[in-house]
Design a protein around this nucleic acid. Structure first.
Length: 558
DNA sequence: ATTCGAAGATGCTTTTGGTG
DNA sequence: CACCAAAAGCATCTTCGAAT
């Protein structure tokens, strides 16, 4: 590489330099200096790096610090906040030359009036930081433009250690536009950037004959005519029908995006011609940067359509099958993501944290003086997690538990226990679920129903985990609630379904090879399914045993 | 002063029984 | 017993709202 001999090659500043400069700073009190140096060192320690190896860049440190959770790092939330604040202050003092000072001059009169007169208090909060930023830059409310928002985002990401600058910008824009639209017509509206999400064309934008053809195909899948010879053996469930529709919509969209005119799609037969299929798949592969499971699913739907609806020749069907084979994605048992998430539980501390979480949540809720909705939700999550630990059912079944239909109380007083019974028709694989909860879990459930659930709107209904409208929480919603609570309280990243894997893992850890028990616990129909999933984890135990039995010996010898 | 929560919609991924 | 189809589940976006 050619290097200009006259140019001075500057090494990027590191946190090591920040410490050196801080220590040389005579205008700081000894205490202040000590605190700042400590903050920088602690931050580096949390990141498992030496200060010299970390760039003195707020932007870079934000990303690194984003994954630090106080519980996992064994420090208090407050201490972590103090460390972050000290870190930014230290960088400001030693590295950054120009920055917008916090709490400097008051905002300009126009900004002050605007923010103080918002209809809702939260709007003032939301716009607080933005208004100070603009004011300090000499930008009045009427001068606000998309460009100003860009500079605001730059300020947030380069000079402040907030978690998600882009989210703050998004909410600022939303709040601003809300005010501009409803309260202050004189204010300029901000442009909403296009969503990065792929959205397919709505089916209603295709020719009527195409829409009708799809509906006919769906209708065929959802009804069983026992007199029909080659009809489906059983009616598909609503979820599957939704997926069929989605696949066809996504493929039609792929064709349009690759240049086919929507008007040219007159029926399903226009989707399954081999050349057309290749064209669509090429587009999808290009767009997604490789094969995806969804491409394979789409292909499967197209083949079904080709075979049973369009009734293509056997030759064509063979061609389509060979195309499908080319887009398949190798998959064995469990994905890396799930494997990694389960890996968190190789640390026994995390197992304890999770097992103890229900109790922790209840006691946390109980400590609040005027406990209200939020505390009731905490106890709701405690109950959900406790049930998942005892009986790792699918989130769909958990979220729709009904007090009247699924719960039965047995026994009296201290021995009272709650039984959960879910009929097979409500379960994914049609295996009924029956479980007697432990006395402890039953007590927790009882306390939730009698003391906490009534604090929630919608508690007059039968849903154990009620929404404000009285309906049961939706599975995806409830799953997210539970994941978030677990993440917030323990730092563990998991989803509701992982409770099933975890249960199997914990049990097999204590009782190696007892797959039959795990099969019953998880309600699998086939033992095959169980072993397929969990046999790979024997490797973990193998390395652990190697560690304890062989490496320990080495230590002893040493 | 700073995000956070609820809930619906939908794209995308995973699970799981069964079959060739 | 590898592979596939059915039936989920998960992640993320959107919109309307607030809590600490």
């Amino acid at each position: 590489m050619y290097v200009d001999q006259y140019s001075i090659i500057k090494k990027p500043m590191t946190l090591g330099d920040v410490v050196t400069r801080l220590e040389a700073k005579t205008d700081l009190s000894t205490t202040k200096r000590r605190d700042l140096v400590s903050a920088v060192r602690t931050a580096a320690r949390l990141l498992h790096r030496s200060p010299e190896d970390l760039p003195a860049s707020v932007e870079d440190l934000r990303n690194r610090l984003a994954d630090i959770h106080p519980v996992q790092a064994s420090i208090s939330l407050k201490r972590l906040a103090n460390v972050k604040s000290g870190l930014v202050a230290a960088i400001e003092m030693t590295v950054t030359t120009c920055r917008i000072r916090k709490r400097q001059r008051p905002r300009s009169p126009a900004w002050a009036t605007l923010v103080q007169s918002t209809p809702q208090k939260w709007q003032a909060y939301t716009l607080s930081r933005f208004s100070h930023f603009c004011s300090s830059q000499g930008i009045e409310p009427t001068d606000v433009s998309d460009d100003v928002l860009v500079r605001f985002e730059e300020h947030l990401s380069k000079e402040v250690l907030t978690k998600k600058p882009e989210k703050i910008v998004k909410i600022t824009r939303q709040t601003w536009n809300g005010l501009a639209e409803r309260v202050h017509p004189e204010l300029p509206a901000l442009t909403k950037p296009p969503s990065r999400r792929v959205l397919t064309r709505d089916l209603s934008t295709y020719p009527a004959s195409f829409q009708a053809d799809i509906e006919a195909w769906i209708a065929r899948l959802e009804t069983v005519d026992f007199l029909e010879d080659d009809g489906p053996a059983k009616a598909l469930r609503p979820t599957s029908l939704r997926n069929v529709r989605a696949c066809l919509r996504q493929f039609a969209d792929a064709l349009v995006k690759s240049g086919v005119k929507p008007d040219e799609l007159l029926g399903l037969s226009d989707l399954v011609d081999p050349e057309t299929v290749k064209r669509g798949l090429r587009y999808l592969r290009e767009r997604d940067g490789g094969n995806r499971p969804s491409h394979h699913t789409i292909m499967a739907q197209l083949i079904a359509v080709a075979r049973y609806h369009v009734r293509v020749s056997g030759d064509i069907e063979k061609v389509l099958k060979s195309i499908q084979a080319k887009v398949s994605v190798a998959y064995d048992g469990m994905t890396d993501k799930n494997r990694n998430r389960l890996g968190q539980f190789r640390d026994e501390r995390n197992i304890d944290l999770l097992l103890d979480l229900p109790r922790h949540l209840v006691s946390k809720a109980g400590k609040v003086k005027d406990a209200g909705r939020n505390q009731a939700l905490m106890v709701m999550h405690a109950v959900a997690i406790d049930i998942l630990l005892a009986c790792p059912m699918r989130i769909g079944n958990l979220s729709s538990l009904s007090i009247d239909q699924h719960l039965t109380w047995r026994g009296e007083g201290r021995e009272q226990r709650v039984a959960i019974a879910i009929p097979g028709s409500e379960v994914k694989n049609r295996q009924p679920i029956t479980i007697d909860l432990s006395v402890e879990t039953s007590k927790l459930l009882d306390r939730y129903i009698h003391s906490w659930r009534p604090k929630l709107e919608g508690s007059s209904g039968n849903a154990l985990f009620t929404q404000t409208n009285g309906n049961a929480r939706t599975p995806s919603r409830f799953g997210q609630d539970i994941s978030r609570t677990i993440k917030r309280e323990t730092g563990i990243v998991m989803n509701a379904h992982l409770f099933r894997h975890l249960a199997a893992l914990l049990f097999l850890d204590k009782h190696p090879g007892e797959y039959e028990t795990v099969r019953r616990l998880l309600g699998h129909k086939n033992l095959n399914t169980t072993t397929k999933f969990y046999a790979p984890f024997e490797t973990w135990r193998a390395t652990e045993r190697y560690e304890t039995e062989v490496l320990q010996v080495r230590r002893a010898v040493k």
